[in-house]
Design a protein around this nucleic acid. Structure first.
Lengths: 112, 112
DNA sequence: AATGTTTATCGTCGATATACGATAGGCGAC
DNA sequence: GTCGCCTATCGTATATCGACGATAAACATT
């Protein structure tokens, strides 16, 4: 599912016009971001990334009772949602929170 | 990597009980609540229920481009998550937000 | 009692999430 | 170079979602 990110509403406001937020579009954005944390394993991953302010690499697997491939899948979902970004750093990949989208999630939930 | 057990423990509880709420539980609670709004249709339903402060009955179906059975399914999911509660009122069922769990969702997301 | 309205449930379909093991690829260390 | 570590991907199996139509259940009205 994972709400398609190719939603073409665009009928609400023009490019230059502020138009706070088209209801449908913000609904899909919120759904996408909520979907990212709609699994306990991903919640734990997100919290881990936030607590360790620096990027985290393989430690994530050690903290979770899941296979490495499964954790990789969750990380992929988190990356696709935009809540997490990963950067290659030599032999390992370091993940960190995307603060912009985390703020967006907080704002969208907070304004419910 | 199980070397840094000491710094992993955050003070999740401080009262009489020896931590009856392990991090997993709050992760599951957040995942459950996030799952409730992890679909655009459910986001719209939740927003509709919040905007109309009174309970809403069949109007939800009219506002959504979905079949009645599908909307009923989404409402069932929202009820199971605890974010929405429904009360029988004569021949119809009236839904309203469960403010307690909505606050819990906001708090959990906000404290990320 | 019969009817109409409203909501829930059933059955079904396709699509996708979740989990795992096995495998492939990249990079540092020896 | 070869080896070992870390991560991604593939393939697979199971379970669930999301959607619909059709039907059942509960209630007010007639």
């Amino acid at each position: 599912m994972a709400a398609n990110r190719t939603s073409k509403k665009t009928a609400c406001c023009s490019d230059t016009n502020p138009c706070p937020l088209p209801p449908d579009q913000s609904a899909e954005q919120l759904a996408t971001l909520a979907w990212a944390i709609a699994h306990p394993a991903r919640v734990r991953i997100v919290r881990l990334l936030i607590s360790r302010n620096t990027c985290v690499c393989g430690e994530i697997v050690d903290e979770m009772p899941l296979a490495q491939s499964t954790v990789s899948q969750h990380l992929k979902i988190l990356k696709e949602s935009g809540l997490v970004q990963g950067e290659v750093d030599g032999p390992r990949v370091c993940y960190c929170i995307n603060p912009e989208n985390l703020s967006a999630l907080k704002a969208l939930v907070g304004s419910l």
